[in-house]
Computed example of a mutant assay.
Amino acid sequence: MPNEPHQFSRAAQELIGSFRKIPDETPRRMRIRPTKDMGGLVQDLLVKYKIGIESEESVIREHWAEVAGPANAHYSHVRDLDQRGCLTVLASHAVVRNELFLHRKMLLQKIQKLPGCAKVKALTIRAG
């Protein structure tokens, strides 16, 4: 016989609660899901957000002043790298955004020469 408590259906829980005159305070649309192990959830988050792992974005961020130049790097920053290899850069000034856009092929070549960044295939410059 398992040591786990028996789980009643939602309708059975409501019926038992009404017999015992215990108000049901759970929302009608709420699903009761099985609990998950906290260690597994934390591990999934560490992998998803690349915490503690040297990622391409962090390498590019470290060398961004060298790649874009100190003046342009002051008004821009690397946002993320998607699955297709497209790097998104946010520029807070329109002139800097235009200059980065005009030199994006040269910037892409410099980025691809950085260690572990060969998978970067395209560069997107956005306002931000």
Rank of each mutant, 00 (worst) to 15 (best):
S92C: 14
R126H: 09
R10Q: 14
T35P: 12
R79A: 13
H93N: 13
L108H: 00
H77P: 12
L108Q: 04
I32H: 05
N3H: 12
R31H: 04
R28Y: 10
L15S: 15
D82E: 10
A68E: 08
D82H: 10
Q83F: 15
T88Y: 01
H93A: 04
I51C: 05
E57S: 07
K21H: 10
S76I: 08
T88C: 02
D37R: 09
H74M: 11
A118P: 10
M38P: 15
S92V: 05
D80V: 10
P2K: 10
S18I: 02
K50S: 06
G40D: 03
F101H: 02
L15K: 15
C117L: 03
P34V: 09
V78C: 04
Q13H: 01
K48N: 10
E25S: 14
R10W: 08
K110R: 01
R104D: 00
G40I: 06
A11Q: 13
W64M: 00
D24Q: 10
H63V: 06
R79W: 07
C117V: 08
P2I: 11
D37E: 11
S76L: 08
V67Q: 01
S58Y: 11
Y75N: 10
S76K: 07
L102G: 03
G40Y: 01
P23G: 01
G52R: 00
D82Q: 12
G39L: 07
Q43S: 14
P5F: 04
Y75F: 12
H74I: 03
E14H: 15
P5D: 03
G116D: 08
T26F: 09
G39Y: 05
F8H: 09
L90Q: 04
A122N: 11
V89A: 00
I53Y: 01
S92F: 11
A71I: 02
V96T: 06
I16W: 07
G116N: 09
K48F: 10
T26W: 11
H77W: 06
I22W: 03
S9N: 05
D80I: 12
E99G: 00
V96W: 00
P115S: 06
I32S: 09
L123T: 02
V42Y: 07
S55M: 10
E57W: 04
K21N: 07
L123H: 01
S18D: 08
A118W: 14
F101I: 02
A122I: 09
R20F: 13
V96L: 00
G52T: 00
L108I: 03
M106F: 03
R29L: 15
K110T: 05
H6P: 11
E54G: 12
F8Y: 12
A68G: 13
I51R: 02
E54T: 15
R20L: 14
G39P: 09
H93P: 02
V47A: 12
A122D: 07
A11E: 13
R20G: 02
V95T: 09
H74V: 04
R61G: 00
A73T: 01
V67S: 00
E57M: 09
Q83M: 14
L107A: 04
K113Q: 10
L45Q: 13
V89C: 01
A127R: 09
E99P: 03
S92Q: 11
L87T: 07
E62K: 14
M1V: 12
N72D: 06
G52Q: 04
R31S: 10
V42P: 13
N72W: 01
V120A: 06
K36T: 12
P27W: 05
A91L: 03
V59T: 08
S58E: 15
D80Q: 13
E14A: 15
